[in-house]
Simulated assay, not measured.
Amino acid sequence: RTCQCGRGGTLIERIIGRVEDYVVTPDGRFIGRLDHLFKDTANVLMGQIKQDHVNEVRIRIVRDAHYTAKDEAIIRKEARARLGNEIIIRFEYVDDIPRTKEGKFRFVISHVEKSGLEHTVIRDIRGHRTQEVLIAADGSEISWTALNIHDDTFMHVRQFQFFQETPGQAVLRIVPAEGFGKDDADRIHRNLGCKLDSQLDFTIELVEAIPLSARGKAIYVDQRIQQEKNFL
């Protein structure tokens, strides 16, 4: 194509610089420059972080023949240090990670909406105490942090949320990931039951999606009892 100025030579249509996404954490942080997660693992040929949901990331890895569980543990530790304890970290091993059509390699790809990243508008400030506690049958409060389990309890769970309208009873809404089955439900009942110590009974309800808050954050406890009292 000829330039409008009429001069000959190479025509540069556009210059594409570094294209990188941020990982959005459940507590609302935007984390970038995560390529260093792979710097201490010589057995990783290619690595990429992909995010489709605000409470989960997938670390995609092309590994060489010497890659072991030790390499995965190193990467998981680095990712946990940067992303925090609330986000689920999964590993996906692939044969190749494609580049963009411009030939660029993207270390982070996030499909989570980032509204408010460039210009944040604060419309109001609200407390979130009612999203932090469940109410036991005797009226006492059960802190969400006491239930925040980081082992394999939610291994095949994409999203989850406690919904409560009655003291001592709740529904644990779950968006299942691939592979979720009866063993997963039994494990969740067993592990959370130990934490709750008969203070609260819950049933599991499988759902297709759990809405985020108006600010795009995950709501782990949707507790309506104190909310109703606040309006009385």
Score class of each variant (00 low, 15 high):
25 T>C: 11
25 T>E: 06
25 T>S: 09
26 P>T: 02
27 D>H: 08
29 R>N: 14
29 R>Y: 12
29 R>D: 15
31 I>M: 07
33 R>H: 11
33 R>S: 14
34 L>P: 14
35 D>K: 04
35 D>E: 12
36 H>Q: 09
36 H>G: 10
37 L>N: 10
38 F>V: 04
39 K>W: 07
40 D>F: 06
42 A>S: 14
45 L>I: 14
45 L>F: 01
46 M>C: 01
47 G>T: 10
48 Q>E: 05
50 K>W: 01
51 Q>I: 03
55 N>F: 05
56 E>Q: 12
57 V>I: 15
57 V>L: 13
57 V>A: 12
59 I>Q: 05
62 V>C: 07
62 V>Y: 05
63 R>K: 15
65 A>E: 02
65 A>K: 02
66 H>T: 06
66 H>A: 11
68 T>R: 00
69 A>D: 13
70 K>L: 09
73 A>P: 10
73 A>T: 12
74 I>M: 10
80 R>Y: 05
80 R>F: 05
82 R>H: 10
82 R>G: 02
84 G>M: 07
85 N>I: 09
85 N>P: 00
89 I>P: 11
91 F>L: 03
92 E>C: 08
93 Y>R: 13
94 V>A: 01
97 I>W: 00
98 P>V: 06
98 P>Y: 03
98 P>M: 07
103 G>W: 03
103 G>D: 07
104 K>R: 13
104 K>C: 02
105 F>E: 03
105 F>Y: 15
109 I>R: 06
110 S>D: 04
111 H>N: 13
111 H>F: 04
111 H>G: 01
111 H>L: 06
114 K>A: 13
114 K>P: 03
114 K>D: 06
115 S>K: 14
118 E>D: 14
118 E>V: 06
120 T>K: 15
121 V>E: 09
126 R>K: 15
127 G>M: 08
128 H>T: 11
133 V>W: 04
135 I>R: 07
137 A>V: 11
137 A>G: 03
140 S>R: 10
141 E>M: 04
141 E>Q: 09
141 E>F: 03
141 E>V: 03
144 W>I: 14
144 W>Q: 13
145 T>I: 13
146 A>C: 07
148 N>M: 11
152 D>T: 14
153 T>K: 10
154 F>G: 11
155 M>C: 08
